[in-house]
Amino acid sequence: MSERSKLEVRHLTAWFGKTAAIKDVSLSVPAHTVLAIIGPSGCGKSTFIRCLNRMHELTAGTRVEGSVLIEGEDLYARGVDPVFIRRRVGMVFQRPNVFPTMSIRENVLAGLRLNGVRGDHASILEDTLRRTALWDEVKDRLDESAVRLSGGQQQRLCIARAIAVEPEVLLMDEPASALDPIATARIEELIGELKQGYTIVIVTHNMQQAVRISDDTAFFYLGELVEHGPTKQIFTTPRVPRTEDYVTGKFG
């Protein structure tokens, strides 16, 4: 595919025991774009992105075949350490999962500190919080417990925590599904800005959201990639009838 693709997935199949949750998926994501993954629940969206930073294998009894290339390097090649992958491919989860024992400051810097990365932590802190539009809201209470933030703030803090370690790719698993509409709008706005610096893959069950934030869209059904293309085309002139059924709300 394109020479500039940041992330390339080739013939990826992911297993839970004997059932394949993802079946032979191939696609690529150009740098500085947002790819939205859509599909009915249980179609393997979450499993798919958990394969992109090797979080899938943390569940007992799982197995992955195929390859995922980041700038041409295979994450699944022998001898590759998943820990290093995860520093280059960050992840934001469905529900905000701030570390409850840590302050706001410690949460943002957690990745750096726990990995023993030195540097100008103070400026990284401010810069990251500014990029996630949290700085003005929290700058006076950086040492308070992160648990005291609102749900939307917590999720933006999780995004800040993920980008503080300077990943190249950011995976988001329905990051706004547990949030209210206003907080969701802020997250969507944020994703548009983060696109400048990162390549983003986002799972969403909300088709409006996919249209608003993504450049490309991939539609998954029962573990298979049904259709993948520019978002506009997927939602206006889908090639596969099943995609059309889904995006027009006939099922799912």
């Binding site: 295979d74 699944y76 350490d81």
Partner: peptide, 21 residues
């Protein structure tokens, strides 16, 4: 941790030295 299956040998050769290893 279960071992993840590697891709085919050709691709493994492709994956040159990197920060991942």
């Amino acid at each position: 941790m279960p071992r993840a299956d590697a891709g085919d040998p050709a691709e493994m050769a492709l994956a040159a030295p990197s920060t991942l290893r």
